[in-house]
Structures are given as C-alpha cells and as structure tokens.
Design a protein around this nucleic acid. Structure first.
Lengths: 202, 202
DNA sequence: GGAAACTCTGAATCATGGTTCACTGCTTCC
DNA sequence: GGAAGCAGTGAACCATGATTCAGAGTTTCC
C-alpha cells in the first residue's frame, strides 16, 4: 500500500465532479441536449474530454446525472409547496405560480427538462420525473376532494392533465421570451388549472 | 429526346414513393424514430437503402414527410369534429373522445407523433402540429364564450392547456396497454377537459 | 434491335462524436 | 528522495448510420 487518497484529495475530486455537473447543466440549458457534446462540456469545465470519463462511465451517465439533479430540485420545491401550509386549493394555486415562475426564470433549463429532444436515457428519466409530478398533484387533488373543496373526480387523471397542461402552456413562452406578458400568463394559467381541478372560481 | 417517362412509369414511381412513406410510417410506429434507420425503412419497403434517395433528398426529409402525413390526418379529423354539428361543448366532448380513441387504437403512431424522441427536423414539425391543435381548440373555446356556454377566459391558454392535458393523459396509457380501462379513462379525461374549459358538469 | 436515359443496387465512403490509451505529471508514503 | 499508483491530457481509435456512386438492369423511342 503505497498510495491512499487523502481527505483533501478526495474532496478535490468531488469538487471537480460537482463542477463538471454544474458546467454540463449550463451547457445543456444553453444549447440543449443534442448540442451538448462531451467535448463542449469538458471545454466548458476547463478539462480534457478524456477526463470526463474519470467521473462518469459514459456520456449518457453524465446526462442522466445532470437531469436528475435539476429535476430533483424542481420536484422538491413543488413538493414543499403542495405539502406546505394552506388549504389544498391555495397550495395548488401557489404551486402553479412557483413552478411557472421558476421555469420562466431559467428558460433554457426548464425547456431541457420539459421538452427538449434528448437521448433515450434522459427520456426515460423524464418519464419518471413526470410521474413524480403527477403523484404530487394527485395527492393534493385527493385532499381537496376529502375536504369537499374539490368535486369528485379521478385524481390520477386530473394530475396527469395538470402536469401536461402546465408544461404545454409554458413551452411556447419558454421559446419566445415576452417578459411583460408573464403576469397575465400566470393569472390565466392558474385560472385554467383551478377550473380543471374543479375549484370554485375566485 | 430518346427517353420520356410514360404515364405508367410516372405512376409506378409515385406508387413506390407512397409505399416507402407507408412502410416508413409503420416502422416508426413500431420502433420509434431513433430506431428507424434508412436501412431498416428500406428493408421494410423491400428496396435498397440507396433507393430511398431517389424519392427523398435525405433521411430527415423522409421523416418530415412521414410525420406530416400522419399529423395532417389527425388535425383534419379533429378539425372536422370541432367544426362539425352541435354546440361548442358537445363538439369539444366529442373531439376528446375521437382523438383519444384514435390514439389508443394506434398507440405506436400516436406516441411517435406526440412524444417519442426525434431528430430536430421532426421536433420542429411537432411544434407546428401542436400549434395547429391549439388553434382549433382556441376556436371552439371562443365560440363557447360567445354563446355564453363557457365562462370568460383566455382562449389561447385554455387551448394550450387542453392540448398538453390530453397528450400527457394519453402518454402513459399508450405505453402500458390496459385495454379494459379505456372507457373509464375516456370518461374521466373528458370530465377533466370540460371542467378545464369551464363547461357546466353534466 | 439498339442507343440513350433512367432506376435500382449495395458495398464503399464519409461524418460525427463518443471512447480509449499511452504518456505526462502529481500525490502518497516509506 | 524515490518507487508506486493515480489523475489529467488529447490525439487516435472506433462504431454507427447516413450518403454516395459505379455498375447492372429497365424502359423508351427510333
């Protein structure tokens, strides 16, 4: 035993890995999955292409990691809001607002997570990600039915509908940045979502 | 002038092209865009790979043609229903039913049109396709508002929401074929869509 | 029948971009 | 200090799959 990684060395390597993930995320947000080559990502992180393979076994593994990190954040934020204080309808309202604002503030990343063409491995992650969204929405819809605030309905279907609805309504704005229309978009989208869940119109 | 295409020859070539498009559509429906190589498509049509290039300048052009043909059919069917007889809410109800049934009857193709990973050229077509859906839905929503059947709302947003909602609600069922749940799915999806547009619950 | 012009073929070619690897230089530990 | 082992490099390698093209087979028209 003539070599053992010292703690400093370990954390240096971890930092390099983190930096790589962060840079890859930026590249993906800027140019999309299809343009995010290993070479481009490595260049953005200031390392050689070959060095990527010391942190990840393949490009696909890196892509999946990038997707998971970003998606996880969104699921957590949404979960916090949907399970936070307030009655179910209030929480749903706030969730749409928070989700849409986050997406519009980081359009490139939002587009990459929601809709951008991606390799199959990332596509599979995306399906899982959307399933988790649906589960969160379904939960709050069920609560709403339990409290009598929402009418009887198939919570799973409503959840899928909400997930698709919010995504689709955002994809176009994500591509065509029209800053000043944001508030109106949010108001109208929230209204549509509430109608969809059967919440009494405010 | 020693050679001029005879009518029979012309129609033979057209037929070959049609056959190629049809076979390519089948292949895409079965294995998705990413697996539909020129070789595979040509084999399915019973011709050599090189012959594809007598009908299309590139693989992308063929893919776009396949997408357009299939998408066009769906837009037409939807347009017929949404602009057909009945009041706006009746038409919207029927449209969801028809669209979803068609998708569930040809799951592979529906998935390819709605969600399957595809090359950029096809992705661009998909955006256009969805825009046309939104326009159709927006029209019927506006009519509903005009007749007083639907409450005041942003028709464009509702249309986007409906497009995304229906797509998302179908993607999962398209992957996991559970035949006997179809009718329940349709009923619940229709209910959610009508709530979303603000139609009085039946 | 036969020259001209076209279609069809499929193996060779090419482009792209992920992956490997021999080498350089740094870190560890006796 | 120096041997052993690891991280970093980037040019070479390789796999995939679209595209080309020279030749073979058809069709047209005189």
């Amino acid at each position: 035993m003539a070599y053992r990684k010292t703690p400093a060395e370990i954390s240096r390597l971890e930092a390099a890995r983190e930096r790589l993930v962060a840079c890859a995320t930026s590249v993906v947000a800027e140019v999309g999955w299809s343009q995010a080559s290993v070479t481009a990502v490595a260049a953005s992180a200031g390392i050689a292409a070959g060095s990527v393979y010391q942190h990840f076994p393949s490009k696909a593994a890196l892509a999946v990691e990038v997707f998971r990190r970003a998606a996880e954040r969104e699921v957590e934020v949404l979960g916090d809001v949907l399970r936070g204080p307030g009655d179910p309808v209030e929480r749903l309202t706030r969730a749409v607002d928070v989700f849409a604002r986050r997406a519009l503030e980081n359009r490139g990343l939002a587009y990459a997570l929601l809709a951008a063409p991606a390799e199959p491995a990332v596509g599979a992650e995306r399906l899982d990600f959307r399933r988790r969204y649906r589960a969160l929405y379904a939960e709050v819809v069920r609560e709403g039915m339990a409290t009598g605030q929402l009418p009887d309905q198939n919570a799973e279907i409503t959840a899928a509908v909400l997930t698709g609805a919010i995504g689709e309504a955002l994809v176009d704005p994500l591509g065509a940045p029209d800053e000043n229309a944001t508030e109106e978009l949010l108001a109208d989208l929230t209204a549509a979502v509430l109608r969809c869940a059967g919440a009494p119109t405010a």
